[in-house]
């Protein structure tokens, strides 16, 4: 008997084909709702560190698309973990797996329903992992902070290694490369 997960999750892949539109490049790979099916998928696909720069993996709850425009993401934000290229071999895959295990295992205690999904962006210089939460309103500051602390804990990040919480609407309207950080821990 397989071990059921609390939620059904969908893995997406973004292929950076310049000849196609952004939406055409975003592909839904498959969904799973048991631990065993997660592992058979994970063991079957390329690791994030093996993807060509410009590509993304996204793992989101079924029914939520990995984009700002999705109704479940519009009011939300993301905890951003940045990893230098030199960390790609050592840390990227471990961090991405740990974030996925946190999500499918519902490890965010009372706040798990606020977690929508996560994306890993493999880029030439700096890879980024973003964990997307549903509501970035000030009233949910303690919820989003608790989620951020859990991420730092599970990833064994020191105080020196900061992660930043950004509202999607700030990320969308950012000038230059850096979006406004609402929290940093």
């Amino acid at each position: 008997i397989k071990h059921p997960l609390h939620n059904t999750w969908v893995l997406w892949y973004y292929d950076n084909d310049r000849k196609k539109s952004w939406a055409e490049n975003l592909k839904e790979i498959t969904s799973f709702s048991t631990v065993e099916d997660f592992w058979s998928l994970y063991n079957h696909i390329k690791a994030a560190s093996e993807l060509k720069p410009g590509s993304d993996y996204s793992l989101f709850k079924k029914g939520i698309r990995p984009m700002w425009e999705d109704d479940a993401n519009k009011q939300g934000g993301r905890w951003l973990i940045s990893l230098e290229k030199r960390q790609r071999e050592i840390d990227l895959d471990n961090c991405w797996l740990e974030i996925m295990l946190c999500m499918i295992g519902e490890s965010f205690e009372g706040n798990a329903d606020e977690v929508n999904g996560a994306t890993v962006n493999v880029r030439p210089k700096v890879d980024k992992i973003g964990l997307w939460t549903a509501d970035a309103d000030k009233s949910k500051a303690d919820v989003n902070m608790a989620i951020g602390r859990k991420i730092k804990d599970r990833l064994n990040l020191s105080n020196r290694q900061q992660i930043h919480f950004q509202l999607h609407r700030d990320t969308q309207t950012k000038s230059g490369s850096a979006a406004k950080n609402t929290f940093s821990i």
């Binding site: 071990h3 059921p4 997960l5 609390h6 631990v35 065993e36 592992w39 063991n43 740990e98 295990l101 499918i104 295992g105 519902e106 490890s107 798990a112 599970r154």
Partner: peptide, 18 residues
């Protein structure tokens, strides 16, 4: 309702089960 939660160790243990 009750939430189905898995510790990291349980998930890692299940990785190797056939």
């Amino acid at each position: 309702g009750t939430r189905i939660v898995y510790e990291r160790s349980t998930l890692m243990h299940l990785r190797n089960s056939p």
